[in-house]
Design a protein around this nucleic acid. Sequence first.
RNA 1: GCGCCCAUAGCUCAGCUGGAUAGAGCAACGGACUUCUAAUCCGUAGGUCGCAGGUUCGAAUCCUGCUGGGCGUACCA
Length: 528
Amino acid sequence: MSDRIILKGLSMRIKDHFKDKYSLTVDPVIQKGTIEGVEFYTSLPLQLSRELKRSPLEIAKELEAIEAEGIICLEAVKPGFLNITLSENVYLQHFNDFSSICRSKNGKKVNIEFISANPTGPLNVVSGRAAAFGRALSYLFEYAGWEVTKEYYINDAGNQINIFTNSIYKAYLEKFEKQTVSFEENEYNNAYVRELAEHFSKEIRSASDPKTFLKDAAIGHTVALNKKILERIDLSFDVWFSESSLYENAQLSDRVLSTLKKKSLSYEKDGALFIKNTALGDSQDWVLKKSNGEYTYLFGDIMYHINKFERGFDKAINIWGPDHHGGVRRLQLALTAFDIPEDFLEIIILQQVNLIKDGEKLVMSKRSGNYIQLNDIVDSVGADAAKYFFLSKGANQHVDFSLDRFEKEGEKSPVFYVQYMFARINSILEKAGRPDKDGISKVLDAEKKLLYSIFLFENAMKEALLKREPAMVITYLNALATEFHRFYHESKIIGSDEEAEYLKFVSALGTMVKDILNMIGFNAPEKM
RNA sequence: GCGCCCAUAGCUCAGCUGGAUAGAGCAACGGACUUCUAAUCCGUAGGUCGCAGGUUCGAAUCCUGCUGGGCGUACCA
């Protein structure tokens, strides 16, 4: 039975009903209501009507007699829905137990790798999207009981890094040795490279081998810088994994090569070594070792994921940009050669962020320095608004990003709408005093809709996890805040006949809201 | 050529194992602060869900084709 079923008890009874009466096995789906006044419903009668050769409404009527714990009313309505109303006590109980619900560990470990941008400059706005997404996804897994390792793969091996260090050296020669240099098209000619040249000018001058020195120094510097930038949005990785460390001992690479050879899954052609992915179901074979002796990125990736697998994770999730989607199947299939199950590695493609300036699409490029830094957007609207912006868009959504517009909209970011809920609660409690004990003993009319919204929280989290869409939680939060602000407006708490009862409700709600906000990665300011 | 993603209100987006009247925010217009924070609330206006077929009792949602946009298809990373 799936996690998505909201009301398990009732769902079992419905199942039994069809089993007993029609010898039919069904999997009832109970959904949250979509129209006013309907808490939950199932459309099962409509779906079964043809098979049972009975009118859907009749089938629904039969179900009305079912009794299940916490269900106060089942009502068949045309054309054949069964509407479900829960007893207030269910909501009350759930509300009072909220803090203790669903925090138990499931004993499974997941590795979530994201951003993993080349250490050739400060993180940009695209990485900001990945950061917000990966972070939120981590929370969703943690909420469901997984032990999560957040990991950043540092691409510190390969040709890009050589080009990068070479560029810094050129910038150094230009500024400090007054040499005339020209940058190739594939080289980095930007402010950051010049900054590094200046920062390390002394060491470069005295180094016996400046480029080797720069390789370590520049990467170290950039990684440290990016860690700091990520701290600004409250993101810290558990593991920073160095690509070059994979090459430091030959054991793993030898094992990869010999395994492939043993299984006849590699061959040499034109001086290069290929992995025979076609034999694994791929449309073509790929180079692992180039004819000049260098390994390809794919080779490192294979080693890296064998390493992940052997670190004992039950699942590995990579969040990649759309320009790498062609590599998904390639890597997953290659890993099957090492007896890693195909579903071990899951790759989520987070769609692109286009940079728009003056209505025109700009090509973002680290080499030219033509890009917007994550730092800039945090400066302009703050960490919470920035995170909220990215999280409110589905993973598949192509995002156009214009800094002007972002700043303008950031001032009235919807994140404040959600945070304001907490600030208002706090304000009430400060004025009226905090109750000794949270938790409610009865349900007041004005509270009903809010209790219902809170009841749906776990479902929203589970759905979001299942679909790998943190955006669904943002949608939920918005709905919750709407419900709260309406409640706040309609019910004057201080001075009302039910003040004591209201305060206990609001106080507990405040704890919940803070919990939820923090869990998804936002601050809960007491004052705004 | 083949493969992946996208197209919903003027704008940014929700709408999720097919369901009841397609929803928010921003922008526009009209109301609500002697009150627990108006960063709020209430109301008005705004839609052939890209187009055309199909499946179904029922399609924004699933299938096929088409149009338009983005990306991939490396001995780049």
